[in-house]
Amino acid sequence: MRHARIILDGRELDITIDANDRITTSAGEALDVALDSDQITWLPPVKAPGTIFALGINYADHATELAFEPPKEPLVFIKHANTLTGHKQVSYRPDNIDYQHYECELVAVIGKTGKNIKREDALDYVAGYTVCNDFAIRDYLENYYRPNLRVKSRDSLLPMGPWIVDTADIPNANALKLTTTVNGKVTQDGSTKDMIFDVPFVIEYLSKIMTLNPGDMICTGTPHGIVDCQPGDTIVCSIEDVCSLETRMVSEQEYYGDKY
């Protein structure tokens, strides 16, 4: 089963989507609308977002691409809900920068509170999986708590969704094809099998430090194949059997409007 949050006809709805793409609200109402309908506004799929953990350089080939040694323990940084936006929404590119790239990532959504969770039990704590695009603005990198908040924690820099797939429906999260297209052209073509630290490892690691709670999310990093994105570009991040996430890039001025 898949779970999402949408706005339809002015109503904010929690929905489930079955194998035949039929949509039912949490109140049991069947919705007569197609998944690809423009009537649907997709919200970020986690209803009460908690702490968002993101992994840096968690694919060996991406580490090479960025001229880094693969890490010996996870490189984790934290983001908050201000970064989230939904499927088919916009993300912005700041003015006067040279390099902003997408990062297509598998996301594990925590469903149960836990501390000191063992690897073999870790998936019991995962409600499901979704896809995010963990944008980075490389111009803003500084060597202090890198990747620093200015690079990764801006409003709209973490499109996510459109839905969460139940953990039970993904028997092996480390055997999924991962692709990104920019304006229809494939720019990233990898597999979650090349992840250095998998979801159970990261859950064990983080939960030795701190309590994980429902609504927390773990964004697991991206493989080789990042390219610069410009206003007007449409970026689609897809992970096999999970979902495809579409984002349109806009300028800073278009994003902020009156507040620009």
Partner: peptide
């Protein structure tokens, strides 16, 4: 690994479990 002093405020989060 710093190479030069910070040019921007150095920020970190204390997440909700803290």
């Amino acid at each position: 690994p710093y190479k030069k002093p910070p040019t921007q405020p150095v920020l970190y989060y204390k997440p909700r479990n803290t």
